[in-house]
C-alpha cells in the first residue's frame, strides 16, 4: 500500500496540493510513519481561493506549511470515527470543527472519504480550510 504522499502524487486532482507540500518542505514529514489523517483539498479547492493567495503563500514556505499542517491530524480517523467527533486538533495546533454526519469538515465537504494509506488515511475535501473559530 502506498503512503499518503504517494497517493497524492499519483492522483492529478491533488497536483496543487503536492506542489504546495513540496514547497513547504512537508514531504518528509508526511512520509513518516505517522499515522496521520489528512484532509486533502482538491485542485479545484485551491482555485476557489481569491487570486494571489497561493502565489504569496508559495513565496513563504513556513507560512504555507502552517496552512497545510492545519489539514493534517495526528492519528488515524476513519469516517466512522469522525462522525463521533465534533472537533479535532490539527498538527498546526488549533482545532478543526467537524460535522461528519453531513461529511463536513469546517466549511468544506468531504467528497471522498477513507482513502487508506500505509501511514494514515486521506479524506478528500472540496475547500481549503483555514484556521479560525
Amino acid at each position: 500500500m502506498p503512503n499518503i504522499v504517494e497517493i497524492a502524487v499519483s492522483d492529478d486532482r491533488f497536483s496543487t496540493l503536492v506542489t504546495a507540500v513540496q514547497v513547504a518542505g512537508l514531504v518528509e514529514a508526511l512520509q513518516s510513519p505517522g499515522p496521520f489523517t489528512v484532509f486533502a483539498p482538491l485542485n479545484s479547492a485551491f482555485e476557489k481561493l481569491p487570486p494571489g493567495t497561493i502565489t504569496s503563500l508559495v513565496q513563504n514556505p513556513p507560512q504555507l506549511g502552517r496552512i497545510l499542517t492545519y489539514h493534517v491530524v495526528s492519528g488515524k480517523y476513519t469516517k466512522a470515527d469522525l462522525e463521533k467527533l465534533s472537533e479535532l486538533t490539527s498538527l498546526e495546533g488549533t482545532t478543526i470543527r467537524l460535522n461528519f454526519k453531513k461529511n463536513e469538515v469546517k466549511n468544506a465537504t468531504a467528497v471522498l472519504t477513507d482513502i487508506e494509506a500505509t501511514n494514515g488515511i486521506i479524506h478528500v475535501i472540496d475547500n481549503v480550510i483555514l484556521m479560525g473559530p
Binding site: 487570486p51 494571489g52 493567495t53 502565489t55 504569496s56 496552512i67
Partner: peptide
Amino acid sequence: LVNGIFAIAGRP
C-alpha cells in the same frame, strides 16, 4: 479589500 486580505494573508 476582501481579495486583498486573501492575497496577502500568508505574508510572513
